[in-house]
C-alpha cells in the first residue's frame, strides 16, 4: 500500500533529476562550443532556430516548417551564414550545432 503511494512521487523525483542533469549537460555543451572546445555528450545536442535552442541532434526542416505553420513560399532560411536554396527545403536536415534563422516575411511596403 505504502509502496504504491510512493511510486508516483518517486517517478516524479527521478524525472525531475534526469531533466535537471540533462539541462546542465546542455548548458555545458553550449558553453564548451562557444569556447570552441567541444565536449560531446550523447543525447545532448543543440540546434538553434531564431535564437531558440532545440535539444535534438537531427531535425527535418520540412517537418519543422510544418509544425510551426510557416509557409515556405514567404520565408527565407539562413543556415550558418548561408541562404538555403528553396529547392533544398524538403531534403534539408538540421544537425547538431546548426544555427538557423528563418525570416518570415509579412505583408506591407
Amino acid at each position: 500500500m505504502i509502496l504504491t503511494k510512493c511510486v508516483p512521487a518517486l517517478r516524479f523525483f527521478i524525472l525531475k533529476t534526469v531533466r535537471k542533469v540533462r539541462n546542465q549537460f546542455v548548458s555545458i555543451t553550449a558553453r564548451a562550443s562557444s569556447r570552441s572546445t567541444r565536449i560531446l555528450l550523447e543525447g545532448c545536442f543543440l540546434i538553434t532556430i531564431n535564437g531558440n535552442r532545440i535539444e535534438q541532434n537531427k531535425l527535418s526542416l520540412k517537418e519543422y516548417l510544418e509544425s510551426t505553420g510557416l509557409n515556405p513560399k514567404r520565408i527565407a532560411v539562413e543556415i550558418n551564414g548561408e541562404i538555403l536554396p528553396k529547392s533544398e527545403y524538403d531534403s534539408s536536415v538540421l544537425k547538431d550545432g546548426d544555427k538557423v534563422e528563418i525570416v518570415n516575411f509579412v505583408g506591407g511596403g
Binding site: K73, R74, I75, A76, V106
Partner: peptide, 13 residues
C-alpha cells in the same frame, strides 16, 4: 521594397 510577402521571398531567395 515590395509589399507582397511572397514577392519579397521570391526576390530575396
Amino acid at each position: 521594397a515590395f509589399d507582397n510577402p511572397y514577392a519579397k521571398s521570391m526576390l530575396v531567395n
